[in-house]
């Protein structure tokens, strides 16, 4: 296996970060993704290998480095306060099978 510039052991080395099936269920819930009961273990294994791989970042010395959120050093541009968009509801709702009487619908939410 080629090393691609990474320290030996990182790519196929021991799994440094291990996600449990409970971890997977928790984040799958946060992300509102259904994962079949039979898939949880294999998903946990793959995520563990991904997280172990990215975990090598922990070794990087980033002490006083300013985080970089964006590749461009620009400021947000401001838009004039003008109404430029007009009603196209019927067109927009053609992509929804759950539109009724102009609304979008979902199963009843109890508050």
């Amino acid at each position: 296996m080629r090393a691609h510039g990474f320290p030996p052991g990182v790519i196929n080395g021991p799994v440094a970060v291990k996600l449990t099936p409970q971890d997977v269920e928790h984040i799958a819930h946060l992300a509102r993704l259904e994962i079949g009961a039979g898939e949880i273990d294999s998903v946990a294994a793959k995520l563990s290998s991904i997280m172990s791989f990215v975990d090598q970042l922990q070794a990087a010395d980033t002490g006083s480095v300013e985080p970089m959120a964006h590749p461009l050093d620009m400021a947000q541009r401001l838009r004039a306060d003008e109404v430029t968009e007009h009603d196209q509801r019927d067109l927009f709702q053609r992509n929804s099978s759950a539109a009724a009487d102009g609304f979008y619908t979902v199963p009843r939410v109890i508050e």
Binding site: A100, F103, Y104, T105, V106, P107, R108, V109, I110, E111
Partner: peptide
């Protein structure tokens, strides 16, 4: 939540 049988309208 009212007026839509079993549904919430958005």
């Amino acid at each position: 939540h009212e007026n839509f049988t079993g549904l919430t309208a958005i």
